[in-house]
Simulated assay, not measured.
Amino acid sequence: MTRIDDTFGRLKAEGKKAFVAYIMAGDPDLATSLQVMKGMPAAGVDIIELGLPFTDPMADGETIQLAGQRSLEGGQTLVRTLDMVREFRRSDAVTPIVLMGYYNPIYSRGVDRFLAEAKEAGIDGLIVVDLPPEEDSELCLPAQAAGINFIRLATPTTDDKRLPKVLQNTSGFVYYVSITGITGAAAAKPADVAPEVARIKAQTDLPVIVGFGISTPEAAQDIAAIADGCVVGSAIVKLVGEGRPVPEVLDRVAALAGGAHAA
C-alpha cells in the first residue's frame, strides 16, 4: 500500500472524488514552487503532481513548456527536485506526490540510483509519458518492485485492443487524457469523457482520474462527477507564470479543489 492507495481508500470511504494538482518543480524558482507545493494540501489538494523539467517536453502545451524553461533556466535539476520533495516531507508525511516527466533525466541518473533516491525522498508514484508498455522492464517494473506506483496514461486513441496492454502493469491510478493533443490545448467535454471512463473502468479496479483541458471549478466538478477525480495543471501553472502571489495561486487551487470535491 502506498500513500496513493491510502488516499483513494480514504476518499472512497468518504464518498469524495480526488483533486490532483500539477505544478512544475522550480518554477519560477525553487523557493516559490516549494511554497506553493507546501500550501496545496490545506487548499484541498489530495495528490500533488510534481513536474520534472525537461528540455523536450513533447506532451506539454505552451504553458507547461514555458514553465519547464523557466525552471531549467533557474538551475532546477532532478537532484534539486528530489531535495524539494524531502523538504516538503519534513512537514507532510501524508500527501501523495507523483513525479511526472520524461525518461531521459531518470535514465541519465541511473534507474536503480534514481528509484532508491526517489523512494527515500518521499515520491509515491511516477508518470513517465515517453515510456510505452513495451518498455516496462526499463522503469515500470523496477519502480513497482521499489514500492513506487507507476501510473499509465490512456487516451482517446487507446482502443480496446491496446487498453489491456496499457493497464497490465499500471498501479495507483489510471490517468485518462481527455483530449487528443497537448496539455492546455482544448477543454475537456464530459459527454466525450464519460463513455471512455466507463470503458476503462470495465477493465480495471484502479481509480480513473481525468486530466487535460480542465481549467475552472465548474469543469473540475463536471469531470470529477464522471470519474474518480480530476487533474488540473495548466490553469495553475499559468498563474505561477504570470507572477501571481502565492496566496492568490493557492486561492485558485482551493476553488478548483472545491469544484472537484462538490462532484
Rank of each mutant, 00 (worst) to 15 (best):
L52M: 15
L78K: 04
L126V: 02
L82M: 04
P105S: 10
G39C: 00
T157L: 12
A21W: 03
Q203I: 04
P57I: 08
L167P: 14
M1I: 13
S178W: 10
D6F: 05
Y107N: 05
A118W: 10
S215Q: 11
E62P: 06
A219K: 15
T63Y: 00
P132F: 05
E135R: 06
F173D: 11
A59N: 08
A188H: 00
R10I: 11
D222P: 01
I47F: 03
G229N: 11
K161L: 14
I123E: 14
V240E: 01
G61W: 07
V129S: 13
I148G: 08
Q35L: 08
S215Y: 09
R152Q: 13
T170L: 09
R244I: 05
T170C: 15
D192M: 15
P28H: 07
P164Q: 08
R3I: 09
D56N: 02
I226S: 08
G229D: 11
D92Q: 05
P245I: 09
I200Q: 11
G259T: 11
T77R: 06
Q168S: 15
A227C: 10
V253A: 05
M40K: 00
R113M: 12
I4G: 12
A42K: 12
N104Q: 02
R152W: 04
Y176I: 13
A146V: 05
P245M: 11
R90K: 13
I97R: 00
D60A: 02
I97T: 02
F173K: 13
D160I: 01
A257M: 02
M84E: 12
K119R: 15
G184I: 00
V36R: 09
E117L: 02
I47Y: 07
T7S: 10
K161D: 15
G243Q: 09
L78A: 09
I47R: 05
V111M: 14
E248P: 04
V193N: 05
K119C: 07
L30W: 00
A263Q: 04
A143F: 11
A43D: 07
D46G: 07
P28L: 07
P245Y: 12
K161G: 15
D27H: 03
M84D: 07
V79G: 04
V79W: 01
G172C: 11
A67S: 12
V129Y: 01
A257S: 12
M100G: 13
N104W: 01
R152I: 10
I106H: 07
D136L: 01
S33K: 08
G39P: 00
K201G: 01
E134F: 05
F19I: 14
E135T: 01
T155D: 04
P156D: 12
L206E: 14
M84P: 06
E73L: 06
V98G: 09
V231W: 00
M37Q: 08
K165D: 15
G15N: 01
R152F: 04
A59E: 09
A93E: 10
I23H: 04
A21K: 03
G233R: 01
V79E: 15
L141I: 15
V45A: 13
E14P: 09
A143N: 07
Q203P: 03
F150P: 04
D160T: 09
T81C: 06
I236F: 03
V210T: 06
R244W: 03
V253H: 04
L66H: 00
E120G: 06
T77F: 10
F88P: 03
A31I: 01
D92N: 15
I4Q: 14
A263D: 02
